[in-house]
Nucleic acid binder design. Structure first.
Lengths: 243, 243
DNA sequence: TAGCTGCCGACTGTTGACAACCCACAGTTG
DNA sequence: CAACTGTGGGTTGTCAACAGTCGGCAGCTA
């Protein structure tokens, strides 16, 4: 093996912009979707977007294709691409899977996380508390995501991290609205603090239980009657691409 | 809404081949990888494959891109594509995630599966027993996969099914070899039968426990010392595409 | 001989054009 | 008036060609 390869370029010698065009397009589109600037169901015309980004249709097709594999857009052959829509059932399904993933994550993470990582969690928790107090839903939402992602990162499981990010990515466009459903943010903050306490006590089992309960909250709300209008009603095809 | 849209074409009126070229290419490449006809690390040249399939490079690039998002191939910008390789650590990681997913699946599936589905599981179990007796590793391997997939399908959770298929797809090229590590196939058959018994008794909790133990078997073997030469040693980058 | 420099071949990234397809709309027919 | 059919605009699918980049090799220099 040579001696190049990552880990050597900390900062200051970055290769300018070695990314290809379609990678840049993909990342920008992903950002737009995740930030809510592109609502689910929005049609994504290749020519229009190509004009907008100043490229040809090639890189755009490539980008759309990747985002489709991530579940962020839905491509129908010869019909075009739209920002992915989740039916209520699909969203509930995703929530269940997410619960299983994060439960695994916290079980792995509790004995593995460093003090610094736990401290970081505490900071995020305090940020959430402040955002809840000031009713800054957007900040609360982002911090909440950071908290859960930090947990997953703490598991030291790369595949878990990948799968989790993909799944959460699909849910993100709907999360702000489901957060509002959750009722007061205060309770959510309390739940996070309880989880954090269990982590600080290095009690993996209790942390996992609390996390499972925490994640189940919006799920129950959805399974009841509230929040009917958030999702499209027909459950024909959602994201599946083949077979 | 009109009255077209799937659900009307059961069989016999298929639209010949409405699939696009790149979809066909993707599916054939995926088959080749999953069936082991293309070993991990094999270089996938666009021009060579385009000639082989009789298309231009366009559809091929598209297909390779999708497979990359599925984790089946690894694309390095300006360097080309290779069949994805997993490090031992990544494989262990995937096994852990798979365990969490299938545990969730069986918990959901046990109260939901119909008698017909359980019967199907029993048939698969018997097929595995026969394959194990005759030492037909390939048949055993395929049937084993069918068994686990049937469990996931029984959960009625679409997202779970998607994520599971993606993950298993990444593991498949390495599974036959890890199956050999597992030792005698007989024990595996016994484990499956125990799981099936718990399902037939509609005991979700016991089924989940047994399944977790069952999946952990090859994991433990890997974490010990055996099977060192199966994976590449460097753990630089595996499948991650960004961030 | 060891190390560096510059070229060369091969590959991928990107583009623009052409062809095929789908949907919507208008016109026609009963 | 309702339903069907033909046409047109706009979209995506595919192709072939061009341009840029990378890695290896030959040749030069010390």
């Amino acid at each position: 093996m040579k001696l190049q390869h990552e880990a050597g370029t900390a900062a200051g010698a970055r290769p300018l912009d070695n990314r290809t065009l379609w990678e840049q397009v993909r990342d920008r589109l992903r950002e737009d979707i995740l930030a809510g600037r592109l609502d689910p169901g929005t049609e994504l015309s290749e020519v229009a977007l190509a004009r907008e980004f100043g490229t040809s249709r090639g890189p755009l097709r490539e980008a759309l294709g990747r985002l489709a594999s991530e579940g962020l857009v839905t491509i129908t052959p010869r019909r075009g691409a739209v920002v992915a829509q989740l039916s209520r059932q699909e969203f509930i399904d995703a929530y269940q899977v997410r619960e299983a993933l994060e439960t695994l994550a916290i079980r792995l993470a509790v004995p593995l996380m460093s003090e610094a990582e736990v401290t970081h969690l505490r900071e995020l928790c305090e940020l959430m508390a402040r955002a809840a107090r000031d009713d800054e839903v957007r900040v609360f939402f982002d911090t909440n995501n950071s908290f859960h992602e930090a947990l997953v990162r703490g598991s030291r499981n790369q595949k878990l991290h990948e799968v989790h990010r993909m799944l959460v990515g699909q849910m993100v466009p709907y999360l702000p609205r489901s957060l509002e459903l959750r009722g007061n943010l205060g309770q959510s903050v309390a739940e996070h603090e309880a989880i954090l306490a269990a982590i600080e006590a290095r009690d993996a089992e209790r942390a996992a239980e609390l996390l499972a309960e925490h994640i189940e909250v919006p799920q129950r709300v959805l399974e009841s009657d509230a929040g009917q209008g958030l999702f499209r009603e027909d459950s024909t095809d959602g994201t599946h691409t083949d077979e």
